[in-house]
Nucleic acid binder design. Sequence first.
DNA 1: GTGAAAGCGCTAACAA
DNA 2: TTGTTAGCGCTTTCAC
Lengths: 318, 318
Amino acid sequence: MATIYDIAKKTGISKSTVSRVVSGNGYVSEDKRQTILNAMHELNYIPNQMAKNLRNKRTNTIGFLVNDYLPLVGEFINVFTNIAAKNNYSVNVYFTKTAENEINTLNLLTIRALDAVFILTRINSWDLISSYAKFGPISTWQRVENPNIYSNYVDHYPIYLKILERLDKQGYTKIGHVFSTIRNANTRARVQAIEDFSTKHPNSDQTYQLFYHGQSNAGQDSAMKWLGLINRPQVMIFFADYVAAEFMTTLRKHHVKIPENCVVIGSDNSEIAELMNIPTVDLCFRSQAQNGFIYLYNQLNKKQLPFQKQNPKWIPGY
Amino acid sequence: MATIYDIAKKTGISKSTVSRVVSGNGYVSEDKRQTILNAMHELNYIPNQMAKNLRNKRTNTIGFLVNDYLPLVGEFINVFTNIAAKNNYSVNVYFTKTAENEINTLNLLTIRALDAVFILTRINSWDLISSYAKFGPISTWQRVENPNIYSNYVDHYPIYLKILERLDKQGYTKIGHVFSTIRNANTRARVQAIEDFSTKHPNSDQTYQLFYHGQSNAGQDSAMKWLGLINRPQVMIFFADYVAAEFMTTLRKHHVKIPENCVVIGSDNSEIAELMNIPTVDLCFRSQAQNGFIYLYNQLNKKQLPFQKQNPKWIPGY
DNA sequence: GTGAAAGCGCTAACAA
DNA sequence: TTGTTAGCGCTTTCAC
């Protein structure tokens, strides 16, 4: 493996000048540049990234933290790594199953193995996590109020209100809701939207509400519960497409017709909704992924990338 | 940021001894170890990974290459990064959309930014790719005959034959097949299985066969084709669960009952098959991901990890 | 415009 | 068991 030193020796030019042409910094006369370029070619020279990292004190690598796998995660990683690659960053993916694991991964910031970190889902408190921001920028798509963490969230309140208005116009009066944990700020926004809607529309029944922390089989569980009801909601709205998908499949197994007997609505506009033709709402996770990266990039570099606009919108299915 | 030098200065012990306790290599007397440990704690010392990398000529990072996103990719990354993390490796995910991009990513081996590479899907020829094996081990789950690339493939021939026998016993005589590209060795194995089955069972009709390269909407396309047939196959077998899922959803939109009017069978045993209750076959991608990592690990380290056993099996659905 | 030299933080061969 | 020493490959003052 040829080094900068080898090509300096071969050409009789100093290491520093060679470095200048390799890194593109500083002035080098045209003829020297050419001889160096030729030598680089001949010796098959490739700069050593580790040496650069040590010298430059940056790895051009961003950590992507998520604590568990869900179908949406893959799609998110796809968008995130793509914009990162375009801007010359690598992304390391970590599934941080435990709180301890999450901290170990955040520690990669302190040992300078990671320049920055994006958090899709987390276990530890935002307060604890934010204490790592002094070692490198941190961003997330979640709704967090913390001065040290950039949060590119989409407010679920207005969009949820719109869904309810829309269903009301279509004549649906009994709606069921399946939420993620109330610890989540957007769950609270949704609950607030329902409350406000209900005061305006006292005839509408929005009281059937389910909450799930561990999301492993929320869809199946809520389906079994729905089947057990005497007075079943006509519409069920879910906090995620894949939960809606599981719900739908379980009902179908029990010969319930979708959407005739129960309208199923997801959230995310993910691949599964498309694959199963589930009406859903685009909460812009794709641009959230991009903006999450853009913030980190802007913190790390002088050059500033512009943020993406986000317009949540309804996606009809069936 | 404290360095090894700072703690040497503080304790009056040499850098090398400090290094010994930090890295855990070599003998250090118990009392010195304690004073060093204390100083490390006081100064909040954290070893610099970049310096280690440069010194050790390894990054403990593995590249995960895939040229496009599919639902299975996320699940695969999940398994792969988990076993990697357990063994102290990070994984960088790259979506290499173009041939050029793929080569640029393989070049990360040459600049020592990556210790090894796993290839899920690829664009360039295996011959070209294998030329990078001299810079670091390469493994894949695909079926490749190349001395420089470890291939942890599962032979689709016997399992496909079994599916056909099973369907035959159940009385199905007209089967349709949707394949990936014939460039894929396992597609050829499947075709061979059909051929051999057909000679044994001349009454069975296996002639309806579709091939797709770009897999973007193979499911929808094959569904439209199926709907247009006069003499429709009773069973359709797909090369991937998500293609089966798309096929199924499209037929349902056209009021075809599944499985009454058409039995749909996937391959992979992925999340989507579970979510939609599609009968499928477990081709062990999870252990393939693990074995793919294990090979790379074993090449990179003296310590050898044992490979996982693989038993493809039928997963009933509906 | 160019080169000498120092050093990023760590490890390991060698000597003591 | 410990310390000295020589780098890993690159970048960047600083002096010429």
